Amino acid sequence: MAKRITLKEGDLVSLKLRDDLYTLGQMTKHSVMRFYDVKSEDGTWPDLVLDNSMILFSGFVGKVITQRLAVEKLTCTTSLILSDHERYWLRPHVNFEGGFPFRGADLIDIGTDCAADYSLVPALKEDLTLSKNRDVIEKYELTNMWGDEDLSDRLCRYFDTGVNRDDLKFEVFPGLWTDRESLRPLTRRLPVPLR
């Protein structure tokens, strides 16, 4: 039986993505985990200092991440400073016209302390479009929760190829990227027929 790891704000954890690839996740606020551009082949982290490590992205996660990917809680010597990765988000619109369940999004701000409920805050920018807001759409993450398999897929792809994107945006913002075919199979963030 896997050991149970519970995380609170600022806690750092080693995540096993596959047998030869580990990375780090850090809990920030309200089910948001931050992921860094650091990796290990065996899950050992000597001289762990994150001060100069690039943040890849942050995402809303559930217990499944700690249950299935987390292998060890680590001592963090770097103080947690919240960033735009945890403050600004893309809140997708529910698509009532059929097809994919989400289409388009609003840019939201959950505050400098990242404590506001993302479902209730007013939009900073409504109805983002590729023609006017491409940079915002590419920069910020969707509020949709991450599961263990889709998170692992995204992080493995980043460490293998350097591509750091949420494949869900292919459907939420059709036409955002034109390299879909060259990336197949896409991550488990999308249902099987769309991968």
Score class of each variant (00 low, 15 high):
residue 80 L to M: 04
residue 145 M to E: 11
residue 129 T to F: 01
residue 136 V to K: 02
residue 112 T to H: 03
residue 77 T to N: 10
residue 79 S to A: 14
residue 143 T to V: 08
residue 122 P to M: 01
residue 75 T to L: 10
residue 84 D to W: 02
residue 106 D to S: 13
residue 113 D to W: 00
residue 64 V to L: 03
residue 85 H to D: 08
residue 103 R to D: 15
residue 93 H to W: 07
residue 117 D to M: 00
residue 66 T to M: 09
residue 78 T to V: 07
residue 113 D to A: 02
residue 88 Y to V: 10
residue 129 T to R: 11
residue 73 K to Q: 04
residue 105 A to P: 10
residue 72 E to I: 10
residue 70 A to R: 06
residue 146 W to N: 08
residue 95 N to C: 00
residue 113 D to K: 03
residue 133 N to D: 15
residue 128 L to W: 12
residue 116 A to K: 10
residue 136 V to Q: 03
residue 166 D to C: 01
residue 65 I to A: 07
residue 90 L to T: 01
residue 160 D to T: 10
residue 161 T to L: 05
residue 158 Y to C: 14
residue 151 L to A: 10
residue 166 D to T: 03
residue 111 G to E: 09
residue 116 A to Q: 12
residue 156 C to D: 04
residue 154 R to A: 14
residue 77 T to E: 14
residue 89 W to A: 03
residue 152 S to E: 13
residue 169 K to L: 04
residue 92 P to E: 03
residue 150 D to M: 02
residue 152 S to D: 05
residue 93 H to C: 02
residue 119 S to D: 10
residue 161 T to A: 07
residue 85 H to I: 06
residue 157 R to G: 05
residue 126 E to Y: 15
residue 131 S to A: 15
residue 147 G to L: 01
residue 160 D to V: 07
residue 66 T to D: 09
residue 123 A to R: 01
residue 91 R to T: 07
residue 167 D to K: 08
residue 141 E to M: 15
residue 98 G to R: 05
residue 151 L to D: 06
residue 154 R to F: 09
residue 142 L to Q: 07
residue 85 H to C: 06
residue 121 V to H: 05
residue 81 I to S: 11
residue 106 D to N: 13
residue 64 V to K: 06
residue 152 S to R: 14
residue 132 K to I: 04
residue 88 Y to R: 09
residue 113 D to Y: 00
residue 99 G to P: 03
residue 129 T to Q: 06
residue 140 Y to V: 03
residue 131 S to P: 04
residue 87 R to P: 13
residue 83 S to W: 05
residue 167 D to A: 03
